[in-house]
Design a protein around this nucleic acid. Structure first.
Lengths: 250, 250
DNA sequence: CGATGACTTGAGGGAATTCAACCGTCGTGG
DNA sequence: CCACGACGGTTGAATTCCCTCAAGTCATCG
């Protein structure tokens, strides 16, 4: 089980990646994250069509999926890896909006330009589909539209929690809530595990929580001194889960 | 013109409110905010149906439309007035997520409970429709679903800007950005005007921007001392628009 | 006219930032 | 093989921006 989750940690749920070469395959039919993605709303027939109009893309760590301000020509459904979504101010200040996991659907925008940037934290795979193609594909498929709605409202609810956190919570609460939220999300792809793996940098965590890297570091070491957690290679191990959850819920 | 906008300020674009009494009327057909609302995606026939399954409701200032945690049985399309959307922490800290205007569509949630509270800042009118009814009504209407998607992604984009602001901007920028954003939104219902009317309290502004009431007050008076604006009854008058826009964009 | 509520102003304090130094790991090239 | 720099992370000291606490103003209203 430990071995399994470790392998998954490297190559998050990506059957599809195996047939990146043979494009004529049943990429979508075999997709291991379909049940998590918008494609769960598609019939077998529609899946074949979807496979035709989408393309499987792969990115190495730190490559950009798209950048804020670019013409938003495509939308992505992630199949593997972790993606960082963020906005920048002209002077370089950065706010990370969230981390996207396999199954997530990103790139929808009300305008015709992306409102934020997205880049790979580790090796990432995704299905890329042009906005026009998706529009024509979806416009007579209420089930798919409902599924997309469901994803939007989930994302919006997450954004609302993030606003509450950024506007009204202390550094301690921000870091604790990050760990708990991240653990809960990882369960979906990583399986439940004692250790919370943190593939993103401290700077990423800081920019996600509206803090500085120093504050994140200090807060984590304080948590460690207080025996709430242990800092281990590539992540943390929660020792006092209920205390962490208390702080996160506060 | 001043008189007109003043009247509008009290009773924002609400033809429908006039026939609150006679429910058998053409409330939806005559609705003055239809072009701004999700109902713009409906045909004449569908509008009649929509009128049948929705109910026109009215709230006085400070009455609640719904409260976080309640069972989310209905969804609202606003027709008049201004609504405050917010979340609370157990200890009373409040974060205002946004202010909803006529045309806005609120109450969608991924779970079956509301994730935030909504209450009226001034006299508010809205069309209330049960989630079930809306679901059955919409599930075979791709045009409506696309319209709802459009609204969701617009709201999400707004939320993302708000995250950037809450996480990474200074008090001065937060207040300036609030004034500029609010002015831009008011144009839709209030028409363009020199004065930016601020129907919400200072506390509301503070809780929206992640600040304290004192900081908002101090920042506004500093802006006034610096001749960027004049504080007038019920709002502010921008004197140096470009400076305000600079700060807001920063 | 006293009371209440919304807002402003001032003084002082504190949480998080800024600035700076330091540590350990890793990859590279002399 | 190890010196080297680069990089990510941690730690300390000083600063600052915003918050807290407190008092004061002004308009509204019973």
């Amino acid at each position: 089980m430990d071995q399994l989750s470790k392998r998954r940690g490297m190559q998050l749920c990506d059957v599809a990646a195996c047939d990146a070469g043979r494009e004529k395959s049943h990429r979508c039919l075999l997709c291991s994250v379909r049940s998590l993605s918008i494609c769960d709303a598609l019939s077998q027939v529609d899946l074949v069509e979807f496979e035709r109009i989408s393309r499987h893309v792969h990115l190495d760590a730190n490559q950009a999926l798209f950048t804020a301000g670019q013409v938003a020509d495509a939308i992505y459904s992630l199949t593997a890896g972790i993606t960082r979504l963020y906005k920048l101010l002209p002077d370089g200040r950065r706010q990370i909006l969230g981390f996207a996991l396999p199954g997530d659907f990103i790139g929808a925008t009300p305008s015709d330009h992306y409102g934020f940037s997205a880049d790979a934290i580790n090796a990432v795979s995704a299905c890329r589909i042009s906005r026009d193609a998706l529009y024509h594909f979806a416009k007579r498929k209420p089930d798919l539209l409902l599924r997309i709605n469901e994803f939007s409202s989930r994302e919006l609810a997450q954004a609302q929690n993030q606003m509450l956190l950024l506007g009204r919570r202390t550094a301690e609460e921000k870091v604790a809530a990050f760990l708990i939220d991240w653990r809960d999300r990882l369960v979906r792809v990583d399986g439940d595990s004692e250790k919370i793996s943190l593939p993103m940098s401290r700077q990423d965590i800081a920019d996600f929580r509206g803090l500085t890297i120093e504050t994140v570091s200090r807060t984590l070491t304080r948590f460690e001194r207080e025996k709430m957690l242990a800092i281990v290679a590539g992540g943390v191990r929660l020792l006092d889960v209920s205390r962490a959850e208390m702080l996160a819920a506060a």
